[in-house]
Write a protein that binds this DNA or RNA. Sequence first.
DNA 1: TCCTCATTTCAATGATTATTGAATTGTAGG
DNA 2: CCTACAATTCAATAATCATTGAAATGAGGA
Lengths: 122, 122
Amino acid sequence: MEERQARTAFAALSQETRLRIVRLLVQAGPEGMAAGAIAQAVEVSPSNVSFHLKDLEHAGMIVPRREARSIIYSADFTGLRDLIAFLMKDCCAGHPEICAPALVAAQCRPSTNNTTRKKAHA
Amino acid sequence: MEERQARTAFAALSQETRLRIVRLLVQAGPEGMAAGAIAQAVEVSPSNVSFHLKDLEHAGMIVPRREARSIIYSADFTGLRDLIAFLMKDCCAGHPEICAPALVAAQCRPSTNNTTRKKAHA
DNA sequence: TCCTCATTTCAATGATTATTGAATTGTAGG
DNA sequence: CCTACAATTCAATAATCATTGAAATGAGGA
C-alpha cells in the first residue's frame, strides 16, 4: 500500500458518518447491506450516504455489488488489513517482539465490550 | 475507546506529515525520537512539527517524555491497538473466523516490502 | 545567575471538506 | 413501453484545517 492511499483511507475513517458506515459493514460481514438500508441505519439522507459511500469505496474500505435494484456494500477486509499493515510496517525496527504483545488484542474477534483492557496472549 | 476519540485518531493519521511521524515512531520503537530529530526526518519547520505532535498526542497516537533539554516522543502502542480494536469490533457479527484470515497478516512483524500481498497463515 | 538552545504558542492566510435539496440516471416489474 | 424506485450527481454554502514566521516559554550548562 502506498502512503497516499493510506492517507485517503484514514481521512475516510475520520468522518462521523463514514466511520459508522464502516463499522456497521465490518459487523455485517461479507453479506453487506444495501445503500438505502445503510442510510436508514446511520440516519442520513440518501444523497449524503451516497457521497460518503463513494468516498469509502475510493478509499478501499468498502466494495459494492449490484443485486436487483439495490447496490450492496460490504467491508473490504483486504483493504482494512493492508491499511493496518501499512501503519505498523517495520514496527520497532524489525523487533516486533517489543510491540507485538500490545497489538495482538487488536485482532478480529467477538467482543461485546472493549472498554476493559485485554491481556495479550501469544 | 469512544467513537469520538477514534475519529480524532483517524483524522490525525490522515495528514501527510503526521502519518510520516507516526510511522517513523512506530519503527523507532519505545526508544522514541526528539522533536527536533523528527522535524529533520520529516523535513518540516519546528513550529509545524510541534503543531502536528500536539495533535498526535491529543489523538493518543504518541506519548511525550522529557529528557534533558529535549522532549522525546514515542508511538503509543496501546493507543494504536485500541484504535484498531475499535475499528474491527464485533466483526462479522461475532463470527471472526470469516474475516480473521484476512486480518492476521496485519500484525506487527518485520518486513522490508509490503507491496507484495501476503497470505494469511493462521 | 545568565545565556543558550529546544520547543511551543500565536495570529493570519489559503485551501479542503461536509451538507443540502433538486434534478438525473438507470434498473426492473406490470 | 412506461411507471416506480433506488441510487447518484450537481452546484452552492458553511465549516474546518494546514502553514508560516515571529515571539515567548522553559530547562540546563557555564
